[in-house]
Design a protein around this nucleic acid. Structure first.
Lengths: 256, 256
DNA sequence: TTGTGTGAAATATTTCACAGCC
DNA sequence: GGCTGTGAAATATTTCACACAA
């Protein structure tokens, strides 16, 4: 691509957004770059190389450059990237120039913590409403917000222009809540309940399952243990393991 | 592969683990299958087809079959999978046959919620210890566990055989905590702090960043808004968008 | 000379489609 | 007849390596 093309300049200088459809893997990394850039900006850096930003974000520099190249050319060859400019660009692409309103449904153990989580507010969002189905919890105030009954969702959603719904209910309630969110026009949902939700075409759904993360780590623990368990089988302990030798996690070595 | 090969039967009938090194994408889905299988078992199903399990887990059946084929052949052609057998097999591969001990560091807002999260306990883990650096929080009891000072980590880790460390501290403390966990022999870490951690080779690190999930959703909101914003540009509104037409999120349509 | 931007190569993952077994 | 297991094709993602701009 010739010359500098800045698709959708943040300053809206008459140009057009034309959000390029980024690879999903790239989208998932942009927030990480953004955080690293904010750190750099706070420590007085005005410029950063792909190498520098990549290591701050925990990726390799080739990947970073490829990712950023999808946004257009915001670097200067021989110099690096302008930190401020890149922050603006990424925030623009991620749609963070407007502070989206988030509705959190389910104010139990986890929901309570999410309601008080600074990161949402400090990173571009506004928790606009809290809901729960349990009347015992309705009325409680968390972080300056009053918990409302879920039946008030339609009214509140219209008033607050809710853009994103976060579900932190028990799994048994999650699908019903998702349906209600969809019904009031919410098109992005983040689900913390450990279950599969189905939503209509056009609604984006992401999920965070805390236990799954631990189970993935458990797999790798198991794997590491099963490898080190056979210290010397003659070399290729990594391949097939013909037969014999019952080794079911002797007791993973911890500490000295 | 000829006949039924059951690499590493759970019942340890003298056979060998021989954990096949599964594709990472497959590993990440196994916990989801496991949850779906438990649901099926509870509702009395003894057998399930790839189609049925796939839809319960929110994936397509081809992917499911490919994933399961990496574990060996546990299905019966023309019939489906034996629910109980598959549960055993997946639990075995994920290393859930032993209840791994988890240490949670950082008992603030989020950590507090994690300490009380049922899902960890119900899905194969044991929260063995809670730590914090803030002496004001040390001694507090959460869910039957007393919060200890982080300096006690070495002693406790040795006593409890901690396998996995969960970091729920502020970002500023996270790297130091990670270092301490690594120092006492922990080789798997789940990080909730919004920062990049570096750990030595051989230590597995996963990360959950709640704000990042919202930012990814925000991107898609932005994208949807920018597409629907040009209702009829003559057909190919999806391609480049030559120039002109300043469209910076008019106001995303919410509600009716 | 430095360091971005990017084609092209290498990997990883998903999907297709069907042979083979129950 | 139904459904798994799996090669082969299609996509997606990562990495390489270098032309070229500043």
């Amino acid at each position: 691509m010739s010359q500098h093309r800045h698709p959708g300049a943040p300053g809206r200088a008459g140009a057009v957004p034309a959000l390029p459809d980024l690879p999903e893997a790239t989208v998932a990394r942009l927030p990480e770059y953004l955080r690293a850039l904010h750190n750099l900006a706070e420590t007085g850096h005005e410029t950063v190389s792909s190498e520098g930003l990549a290591s701050a974000a925990g990726v390799n520099s080739a990947k970073l450059r490829k990712d950023l190249s999808h946004l257009g050319s915001y670097g200067t060859r021989g110099v690096g990237y302008d930190v401020g400019l890149l922050i603006d660009q990424i925030e623009y692409v991620l749609g963070l120039t407007q502070r989206r309103a988030v509705a959190l449904v389910g104010v139990g153990n986890l929901g309570h913590a999410l309601a008080g989580y600074d990161g949402f507010v400090s990173r571009g969002f506004r928790i606009a409403a809290l809901f729960d189905a349990d009347t015992a919890r309705v009325g409680e105030e968390i972080n300056g917000l009053v918990v409302r009954h879920i039946d008030e969702l339609p009214r509140v959603a219209a008033a607050e222009a809710i853009a994103i719904g976060v579900i932190a209910t028990p799994a048994s309630a999650a699908q019903a809540v998702a349906d209600q969110l969809v019904a009031v026009g919410v098109t992005s949902i983040l689900n913390f309940a450990p279950c599969v939700l189905s939503v209509p075409e056009g609604v984006d759904l992401r999920k965070v399952d805390l236990a799954i993360e631990l189970q993935i780590l458990s797999f790798h623990e198991h794997r590491k243990a099963s490898l080190t368990a056979l210290p010397a089988t003659g070399g290729s302990a990594l391949t097939a393991l013909p037969g014999g030798l019952a080794v079911t996690d002797p007791q993973e070595a911890i500490g000295t």
